[in-house]
């Protein structure tokens, strides 16, 4: 596998009047392989956008080099670069009167002649790009008639019409509802997989992104980047070091954050596995500790299952009861057990 994009000792940030104003990333040695989907994660203000803009040559690095297919990026002409890298930027484009089709056809600008007329190849590429992002049915609609999620798919479609080998997207899932988040990321995943387009995107949607990305670039607050498969970062504690804060901790076993609240009691859970998983989650949220040893437990809960119906049997030293939902179970545990009888 060839390395499409490589950086060497790249330092990024802003300068004013020739002086370095702020460096947000230092001595970065990164690479992108073709057909891989890399997600750039990091807290706000850590410099994710700056890195993406620098890699797309929309901004000059403070020092260091970037090479594309073994060629320094500075030696690539603007026209050539526009056929290798395409971008989807944050914010909605403020175009008032434009059809979806026209917007996507703008992606063909690097290929069309002086007057921008579309030939059969251009039209085929536009149609393919629209269909690849599931927006072909909207092609004759005006952009301002679309929802945010549909608009975002059109903007990705436009970037796709540029026939890039690398696509760089700055927070493509921000402002989208959960369905569009999933759909957008799944479509990008498919593009990387089927079309061998390298995809680099920044995101705050930790849960989804760590499930679909081949690799994570984890931007730390000190301007360095940890790179690895999401699972590597889970195991190495890379996520916790950046995202971990007082009040919640990162569970490397499930890859989720757990909110730590005052301990209410020790619970031992038995019964159906799926039922146990969700019950455990609910109990942890409410401040109970899950224990394995039967002797340690103050509360015993047995999760039973009949078809699609679950039930919870609770036994403590003073109370017992049976419940048909986790909500009722928690209500009982938090309300009843707090009484002085305990």
């Amino acid at each position: 596998m060839s390395s499409g994009l490589k950086t060497r000792d790249l330092t990024i940030g802003y300068r004013r009047a020739g002086k370095i104003l702020k460096a947000v990333g230092r001595d970065l040695n990164l690479f992108l392989k073709s057909g891989e989907l890399v997600a750039l994660l990091g807290p706000n203000g850590s410099g994710k956008s700056t890195l993406l803009r620098t890699l797309a040559r929309l901004q000059k690095p403070l020092s260091g080099t970037i090479s594309l297919f073994d060629k320094p990026i500075n030696q690539i002409s603007a026209a050539e670069l526009s056929r290798i890298i395409s971008v989807v930027l944050t914010g909605k484009p403020a175009v008032n009167f434009m059809s979806v089709y026209k917007m996507v056809s703008l992606g063909r600008i690097p290929y069309t002649g002086r007057w921008g007329g579309l030939d059969s190849t251009d039209k085929r590429e536009i149609e393919w790009s629209l269909k690849a992002m599931n927006v072909w049915q909207f092609r004759n609609r005006q952009l301002d008639e679309l929802s945010d999620g549909e608009k975002q798919k059109v903007m990705i479609s436009r970037a796709l019409a540029q026939k890039p080998r690398i696509m760089i997207l700055d927070e493509p899932t921000a402002f989208l509802d959960i369905n569009h988040k999933h759909e957008t990321l799944r479509l990008l995943r498919d593009l990387a997989f089927d079309q061998k387009i390298t995809i680099l995107l920044s995101s705050h949607d930790f849960d989804i992104v760590t499930r679909i990305a081949d690799r994570i670039w984890m931007m730390n607050r000190n301007g360095t980047i940890q790179s690895g498969a999401p699972e590597d970062l889970f195991l190495s504690g890379g996520f916790e070091s950046v995202f971990g804060k007082k009040g919640f901790r990162f569970d490397p076993k499930t890859g989720t954050f757990i909110f730590e609240t005052a301990r209410c009691g020790k619970v031992r859970l038995t019964g159906d596995e799926t039922g146990r998983y969700w019950t455990e989650r609910a109990l942890q949220r409410s401040g109970f500790q899950i224990v394995v040893e039967p002797d340690e437990a103050e509360i015993r809960i047995e999760v039973g299952q009949k078809g699609t119906l679950f039930s919870w049997q609770v036994k403590t030293t003073t109370h017992q009861g049976e419940f048909d939902s986790i909500y009722r179970l928690l209500e009982f545990l938090t309300e009843k057990l707090k009484t002085p009888a305990v």
Binding site: R53, S86, P93, L106, I109
Partner: peptide, 16 residues
């Protein structure tokens, strides 16, 4: 036409 999308998009479309 490229400039309709803003400076950054126009640049990424190869415009000087």
């Amino acid at each position: 036409n490229a400039m309709l999308l803003g400076d950054d998009y126009a640049t990424s479309l190869g415009q000087n």
